[in-house]
Design a protein around this nucleic acid. Structure first.
Lengths: 218, 218
DNA sequence: TAGATTGTTAATCGATTAACAATC
DNA sequence: TAGATTGTTAATCGATTAACAATC
């Protein structure tokens, strides 16, 4: 039964399923039950069946799920087959790292251009991606409507650049700056990468286990 | 009332509180009520009071919370005052970006060294952090016990390096590779940065809003 | 067919929200 | 003191898990 509104928890699990299914395909596993998939991922079989049933009926009773088919469905649900395009704005260390090491293609996203204000970079290419002058961004967007902007500019100009991108009609911003963008365009989706949140969480669980160790000694 | 075991949801919100409290302090706000803080963060006042009450009584009836004091408490809970040390393993683009742009200090963590196998880098410094030969890592750890390893090596060697680090007695690994580390040392905490999960989530919510738009047109 | 496993409904569990006495 | 706001208990809501008929 397809659900009207899918909960955030379910959606955040979809990319995890995708990774595991890719992994299974790489190992030539063609068929898997919710039981086995749950064991591999640390979920209950119930949860797995509930999650997928939000989007349709992808399995077969008595058999399980065909891995390649399920993988395709998950990819489709995540929008990976929609041919989304992206540009990267800010080719500093982080932008550089993403262009070189992050496979946009593997997420079904075509990286078409990069923008920076540094004259040494403008006109160059990076892994086949042309680098344009950030000042020409609005003109470029008028000719090349683009779905996603990867924001890797210095924090100081993040808010302004985000505003420009929103005005250019971008549908989503993948925000690597630690700045709260506060856009006035509610139709623009923002996904923040908060490195510090992640590191602080790690700090917490380390502290916690230290405390437990101490508690035992006492 | 202090709780025995704190739920993950609460812990994941602590860094968000920290960011907002830092922000408030930067704006010289000295006092805040759960009502106002909730309005600013999109939480209910109830949730905020519940969250903090897991760790103690930080407010005053009829007054609210003193921002600097609450900030210190949150920082303490997150382990930021424990003087954790970290090293960065792999000084490619991502490692480079983190050393240069991510403020480890702001998370209360002292970055003491970097490791790489590239002879051009070994012996150099980067933002005041010395770069050592990755092959000498175990010896170095014997002399300099370190809490956290930031793993930014190529995927191909991620698993091996993680094993080495675990054997060296690291307490936590902040994993930027897209590899499931599968450590045999259960006492080593791992926090994964899965860029693709985040981007795919963005792709989903963009697709979703596109679908809603279409549905309205029909 | 018999066994296995799904999709879905019902039960449980946990997290969020509301309410309110305590108290600054 | 009176008003405000906490900390906490109770109520609600939603998410996860269990159970099971349907069926491959």
């Amino acid at each position: 039964m397809k659900k009207e509104r899918i909960s955030n928890n379910v959606i955040r699990r979809l990319p995890m399923y995708l990774r595991k299914l890719d992994d299974l395909m790489a190992h030539s596993v063609d068929r898997i039950s919710s039981n086995e998939l749950g064991r591999l991922m640390g979920f209950t079989p119930s949860q797995i069946r509930q999650d997928f049933s939000c989007f349709g009926e992808f399995g077969q009773q008595g058999y399980g799920y065909r891995v390649p088919e399920l993988r395709e469905q998950v990819a489709r649900i995540l929008g990976m087959t929609q041919g989304f395009t992206a540009v990267i704005v800010g080719v500093g260390n982080m932008g550089h790292a993403l262009v070189k090491n992050f496979g946009f293609d593997a997420s079904g996203i075509k990286l078409t251009a990069a923008f920076d204000a540094n004259p040494d970079l403008i006109g160059k290419e990076m892994d086949g991606v042309p680098i344009f002058d950030a000042a020409t961004l609005p003109e470029w967007f008028a000719e090349n409507p683009t779905d996603i902007a990867v924001l890797t500019v210095p924090s100081s100009i993040a808010k302004n650049m985000a505003k420009t991108l929103a005005d250019c009609g971008v549908k989503g911003i993948w925000n690597f700056t630690n700045v709260d963008l506060e856009l006035e365009n509610p139709e623009v989706r923002v996904e923040n990468i908060h490195f510090s949140d992640s590191l602080l969480y790690l700090g917490y669980i380390i502290s916690e286990s230290e405390n437990e160790k101490k508690a035992k000694t006492r």
